[in-house]
């Protein structure tokens, strides 16, 4: 914890400091087949992703299911071994570290999952489950641990008496609060939220989003916020990364990306969201078809099979990742061209 505190005091809000840098991250899953189970190909779940995450910022990652956004999150945490690429966290390359050395960084990086119930032991009291974090990473006495856990519960909006309850006694929103408590227990600087609010009812979702924001301000947390809900991303994040079929298609600040999306896929995604308003009936762009099979991705631009403005060039030549405006990247031959 000492490292984290030190870092947080020295980092008064001046220049945004890079916390995490990904360089050419690739994650392939081999497809095996035949009698000898030889490798026949790859499912390219994450294809060449490079980005920077600054301290205290929330970076949203959006895309349809199967676009590789969850795999990206897991790869950053080291839950999936990289096929290729570099992860630089707090100026240290962490992808090839030994288990023991890695432990230091594990404290700094945490994850909140979609369904916290699945990761809780149904027969263990919540308090004891949370105590385990401190048993693993600190040398607190039993009394200190109990106090730390109760402080945590209060911090995330639960009560002291919840300490002795079992997971099934909590509602969905409360369970997610427990998931958050576990993630912030060791005072991390970086938290990955993988669809953290997707399974919750809207009213509860709003409560949890507020909690995450409060915690971010209090502890200068950086979030990698993986979600398919663009409304939530607009509300919650500073910058957004759009992924399609394992590729990054666009990256920009929330304002840039939502107001002047460059990539046709981003435009289509934005136009597909049902708006909770009956006054602004506007014309929508409908994408045809489904996500192609990632084991057999289309040639050229991965989106060309569904793209309304695709030209010949798109099926043969893969577009480069270009910074069209300051801090606004896209990979498209016709970036900025409206699709309607």
């Amino acid at each position: 914890m000492a490292v984290a505190e030190q870092k947080k005091t020295t980092n008064a809000k001046h220049e945004p400091k890079v916390l995490l840098e990904l360089e050419g991250i690739k994650k392939y899953y081999p497809i095996k087949g035949g009698i000898l189970q030889r490798k026949q190909g790859d499912v390219k779940a994450v294809e060449n992703v490079s980005l920077k995450l600054f301290e205290g910022e929330s970076l949203g990652v959006v895309g349809e299911s199967g676009c590789g956004k969850s795999t990206l999150g897991k790869a950053v945490l080291g839950l999936e071994e990289l096929t290729e690429g570099k992860i630089v966290f707090q100026d240290t390359e962490i992808q090839d570290l030994k288990r023991k050395e890695k432990l230091k960084f594990v404290k700094e990086m945490q994850m909140i999952f979609q369904d916290p119930f699945a990761s809780l032991n149904p027969r263990q009291r919540i308090g004891h489950a949370l105590e385990e974090v401190f048993t693993m990473h600190t040398d607190m006495s039993a009394k200190e641990k109990r106090k730390a856990v109760i402080d945590l519960l209060v911090e995330v909006g639960l009560k002291e008496e919840h300490f002795y309850k079992y997971p099934h006694e909590f509602s969905g929103g409360q369970r997610q609060r427990i998931g958050i408590a576990r993630a912030i227990a060791l005072n991390p600087s970086f938290v990955i939220c993988d669809e953290a609010v997707s399974a919750l009812d809207v009213s509860v979702q709003a409560q949890v989003l507020k909690l995450l924001k409060t915690l971010q301000e209090k502890y200068q947390l950086s979030y990698l916020f993986i979600s398919h809900d663009l409304g939530v991303v607009r509300y919650f994040c500073d910058r957004v990364l759009v992924m399609y079929l394992g590729n990054t298609v666009e990256l920009g600040t929330v304002a840039d990306l939502f107001n002047k999306p460059l990539h046709p896929y981003t435009q289509a995604l934005l136009s597909a969201i049902p708006r909770p308003s009956v006054n602004a009936k506007r014309k929508r762009v409908r994408l045809q078809g489904d996500l192609p099979n990632p084991a057999n991705p289309p040639s050229g631009c991965p989106f060309h099979t569904r793209c309304p403005i695709a030209a010949e060039k798109c099926s043969s030549e893969k577009p480069a990742w270009v910074e069209y405006e300051p801090n606004h990247f896209a990979a498209c031959h016709f970036a900025g061209q409206p699709i309607q």
């Binding site: 409560q207 409304g231 009956v278 602004a280």
Partner: peptide, 29 residues
């Protein structure tokens, strides 16, 4: 949507983040 009367309906409408309005403040129930 334009004239909700029940506080619960209003609450539901205010807890959905608005994609088109960056300054929208969430008001959870």
């Amino acid at each position: 949507f334009n004239n909700p009367k029940h506080p619960y309906t209003i609450g539901l409408l205010n807890s959905v983040p608005n994609v088109d309005d960056p300054d929208f403040e969430l008001e959870p129930i």
